[in-house]
Nucleic acid binder design. Structure first.
Lengths: 350, 350
DNA sequence: CATTAGCACTCAGAGAGTTTGAGTGCTAAA
DNA sequence: TTTAGCACTCAAACTCTCTGAGTGCTAATG
């Protein structure tokens, strides 16, 4: 798609004006806005050309033009200039990143929330799961004569624990034995490899403490399961209602519902290769997103996992600004706990 | 407030009709609905009386009547009959409760989500924090020569852990020493009692390993802090838009925003004594809730904490149904982990 | 040949006026 | 005390008209 320099300038002016105002743009306004010595009639001719190429469209005969999805795509690929982040903006994000991030879940939630506040669009955050995680070691800590703590660590350095209370008493020696048995039998196995047969064999070996084995192992399995699971967090949904395109309930409601039912991570696009991806209108697979745009960025969470944060908005969203912020934040997050090391030297992997 | 039996029946019929339809109720409809041998004119007279008492109001002269907040209050206190839960409903809730509940945070989230799905109204869930929690014990587990796990257990039986990686190596003996020092110095203290002076003393005692002390203790402090914190989860916001009273954006938007900014738990009402509380329209403190009703139930989370779940909706919400469901769920939650014991014998306190 | 001025044409949206019908309050009779 | 009857009210829906921003086309211009 080749365009003369003038057409490019006009297209760009139209898109940027429409991004601002959400109102169809007329030839006169453009003639005035670009500092060029051409009349509105000329602009009209150019606009007709751009429309013929499929880059613009008309809501109706006597309105101005609005960009088509194809137009946005061209803008994003060729016309858009990188948005410079203000000091204020980066400071805001840095501050958000510095928050105490205790659990992965909470980090995601937090990340989504920050993005949403920063962009004034709804945001979502999800983690892509892993399915070859194994348990690296078990530790059993005696607490009282009838209670102990299971500590389980995976090969991806995730540590989880649970307190177990028993109806009967337990000796330190028993616990020790159990511990050894667990570490020899159940380490290095993926969730799928922990079979009922294996369980039966282990229970047999455990003698008296055979009931405890299944207790501990089922906890370990829960942990592995939890790591496989992908969860989505959405936030800032209410921002939708502030946008002129969602003043009509008919348009807001379906999208709103779609985004709220955040149970299914599959419905959210995940960038394949690139760290950042923009999906404009019909480029989205999901029907409910057909006339919205989605910008997603991915970041390294360490432990072999990648996190994804994204923003959903009308097709006329300010791509330059959004991509700048999103990628800054994604980078920050990568840095933050991609290495398992926080700037302050806190290695939180819980 | 004394009413004749007939007035009671009429008021109840009006309220229940309005709960269903959200449309002002006319005298004729009522005359037909209650199986009574009276004409609409009589009903009109009675309605005029009820209006004089402040139980009903008119949106405008030529419309039917709608209940006033006072009317709802009367209904809730005296007229409402307990809603019977269907087998299907209880089954649905039981199923939700049976879900694997790993972390408190997730439980809250889940509880709110279930309520919201069950009632078709937005729901919120929050935990009221504790501030006299202390650390009961520390355990340090060596993982590699330069990494160990901190396991911390509070007097409320919450167990948390973190993996720490060090730039330098560490001996088992050092770790042992550290462990003892921590257990003698920092157990039994609330967050406020862990003073900088105490830290300095301990660091001095730790000799070589003085840097590690602050690492571990600051993690412990984070844990205590986390338990003090109250967090809110809202869900099902999109349901608002399905209701006729929120078809106008002007009404939906402020409420939506209010509920979305879930950072501040203070904005959500917490029932003081009763296990269940109903706040009708202006009975709410927050301005944004002035013409909505809120139903909240609290439940025991064990560990001396109480959880709160609630539903927000228009004043005409179906109080009978909502209270029934909410209290069933709250009871279930209390049972579920109030005792620290799950039905299946899983004592999850992570 | 590209550009421009001029003009007729289009059409969504705002505003004004009209109609409709559900519902009320009052009065007089049962 | 209840009821039938009737005049009255008023929001909501509908229709009609007007307005003005914006277009496309044509003919003139450099």
């Amino acid at each position: 798609m080749d365009l003369t320099e003038r057409k490019r300038r006009i297209l760009r002016a139209i898109i940027e004006s429409y991004i601002q105002s959400a109102e169809p743009v007329g030839s006169k306004a453009i003639a005035a806005s670009i500092g060029m010595e051409v009349s509105s009639a000329t602009i009209r001719n150019e606009m007709a050309d751009l429309e013929a190429m499929g880059l613009l469209e008309k809501p109706h005969t006597s309105a101005g033009r609005i960009p088509s999805p194809k137009g946005y795509r061209f803008y994003v690929n060729e016309l858009m200039e990188a948005h410079k982040l203000s000091l204020q903006e980066t400071e805001r994000m840095n501050q958000a990143l510095r928050l105490k991030m205790q659990e992965l879940d909470r980090v995601l939630d937090q990340a989504g929330r920050v993005v949403s506040q920063l962009t004034n669009y709804p945001a979502f955050a999800l983690s892509s799961g892993m399915d070859k995680v194994t348990i690296r070691r078990f530790d059993l800590l005696m607490v009282e004569h009838n209670a102990f703590i299971i500590v389980v660590m995976t090969d991806t350095n995730v540590v989880r624990n649970r307190l177990i209370r028993l109806p009967s008493d337990l000796t330190e020696a028993q616990l020790q034995m159990l511990n050894t048995l667990l570490n020899t039998t159940f380490t290095g196995l993926t969730l799928a490899e922990i079979t009922p047969e294996l369980m039966r064999v282990a229970q047999h070996a455990a003698g008296e403490a055979y009931g405890l084995i299944s207790l501990v192992v089922s906890f370990a399995m829960e942990v592995l399961e939890g790591l496989e699971q992908r969860r989505v967090h959405t936030s800032g949904l209410a921002h939708l209602l502030e946008l002129p395109e969602y003043q009509s309930l008919d348009r807001a409601q379906p999208l709103m519902s779609y985004l709220s039912e955040d149970s299914d991570p599959a419905r959210f696009p995940v960038p394949k290769d690139d760290p950042m991806r923009i999906l404009i209108g019909p480029e989205n697979v999901a029907d409910a997103l057909k006339d919205t745009s989605v910008v997603v960025a991915s970041y390294d969470i360490g432990e072999g996992m990648r996190g994804v944060i994204g923003v959903v908005g009308p097709t006329r969203m300010d791509y330059a600004k959004i991509t700048a912020r999103l990628s800054y934040l994604a980078e920050g997050l990568s840095r933050l706990f991609g290495q398992g090391e926080l700037p302050q030297g806190k290695g939180d992997e819980n």
